[in-house]
């Protein structure tokens, strides 16, 4: 398996991500034009921003499960995609090298859930 290196996402791509996140856009469409290692970075970057905004918005009540529970559970995702691998193999960051289309699909769903969460944190913050 090819090593997926972090840190390959350009600064301009990160700023574009913020631009779309803060305009309430879903950012999964940006993923179609990116290389595999960049997609993994997108997921990491958007996750970090989601947690940061969640912490500011929800303070000590923040729980990462309020984000992850909106994502399709792994066994259901695998069934939907005809995957017979063990559940612990189903990580976008790992599968994307051997089942690229499936890995991209999973990461795209996750970043859209995270985008919506950030938009909620921004708009429901008082």
């Amino acid at each position: 398996m090819k090593d997926i290196k972090n840190g390959s996402l350009k600064l301009s791509s990160k700023v574009h991500l913020l631009y779309h996140l803060f305009h309430g856009d879903k950012v999964s469409s940006m993923i179609d034009n990116l290389e595999t290692n960049e997609i993994v970075d997108v997921q990491k970057f958007v996750w970090e921003k989601t947690v940061e905004f969640g912490l500011v918005s929800r303070g000590k009540h923040f729980d990462r499960k309020e984000i992850t529970r909106k994502m399709t559970p792994t066994p259901i995702f695998q069934k939907q995609n005809g995957c017979t691998q063990p559940a612990y193999h189903c990580k976008g960051t790992e599968c994307i090298e051997i089942h690229e289309e499936c890995g991209r699909k999973k990461i795209k769903e996750h970043v859209d859930v995270m985008s919506e969460s950030i938009w909620d944190y921004i708009n429901k913050y008082v």
């Binding site: 990160k14 700023v15 913020l18 631009y19 803060f22 305009h23 970090e48 921004i122 913050y125």
Partner: peptide, 26 residues
Amino acid sequence: IVGCVKNTTKIPMSPDFYEVAGIPIE
């Protein structure tokens, strides 16, 4: 890196998210 707006009402979020130390990118 700064997104410039014509007035503060155009900023899409509360200052609590960005004003103290900015939003980390790298």
